[in-house]
Computed example of a mutant assay.
Amino acid sequence: MLAIGAAALFVIAFLINAADISTNHVFTSTNVMLIGLALLALHVAGIGSGWAGSRRR
C-alpha cells in the first residue's frame, strides 16, 4: 500500500516539475519526491505490508 502511495507522489512530483508549476516552498516537486522516497523506504523495510498477527494453536 505504501508503494502505491509513493508511486502516486512520484507522478505528482513529475507533473509539477514537467509543467513548471509554481508552488509554495512546502509543496515543491523535490519535497513531494522526498516524501515518496520515504514511503518507498518504509515499504521496503516491511512496514505497512500487511497483517502480521500471531497464530494461536
Rank of each mutant, 00 (worst) to 15 (best):
M1S: 15
M1G: 08
M1K: 11
M1R: 10
M1W: 10
L2E: 04
L2Y: 03
A3P: 00
A3S: 14
G5D: 15
G5L: 13
A6K: 00
A6C: 05
A7D: 06
A7K: 03
A7Q: 01
A8R: 14
A8V: 04
A8I: 04
A8Q: 15
L9N: 00
L9P: 01
L9I: 01
F10M: 10
F10T: 05
V11L: 13
I12V: 15
I12S: 03
I12A: 12
I12N: 04
I12R: 10
I12C: 03
A13R: 00
F14R: 04
L15I: 09
L15Q: 13
L15R: 10
I16C: 02
N17Y: 11
N17C: 08
N17L: 08
N17W: 14
A18R: 13
A18Y: 09
A18L: 15
A18T: 08
A18P: 03
A18D: 13
A18Q: 05
A19F: 04
A19H: 07
A19C: 07
A19G: 06
A19W: 04
D20A: 14
D20H: 14
D20I: 08
I21M: 06
S22V: 02
S22D: 13
T23A: 08
T23Y: 04
N24S: 06
N24Y: 12
N24G: 11
N24L: 07
N24D: 13
H25D: 11
H25V: 14
H25Y: 10
V26Y: 10
V26I: 13
F27D: 06
F27P: 09
F27Y: 12
T28D: 00
T28F: 00
T28C: 01
S29N: 08
S29Q: 09
S29V: 07
T30P: 02
N31R: 01
N31K: 08
V32T: 11
V32Y: 00
M33I: 11
L34P: 09
I35A: 15
G36K: 00
L37T: 03
L37Q: 00
L37V: 08
L37H: 05
A38M: 12
A38F: 11
L39M: 07
L39R: 00
L39N: 03
L40A: 14
L40M: 15
A41M: 02
A41Q: 04
A41T: 10
A41C: 07
L42K: 09
L42Q: 11
H43N: 07
H43L: 02
H43A: 02
G46Y: 03
G46F: 02
G46N: 03
G46E: 05
G46P: 01
I47C: 10
I47A: 10
I47G: 02
I47E: 05
G48R: 03
S49K: 10
S49Q: 13
S49E: 14
S49I: 15
G50Y: 05
G50Q: 09
W51M: 06
W51I: 09
W51R: 07
W51Y: 11
W51N: 06
A52R: 12
G53D: 03
G53C: 02
S54E: 10
S54C: 05
R55Q: 06
R56Y: 05
R56M: 07
R57I: 11
R57Q: 13
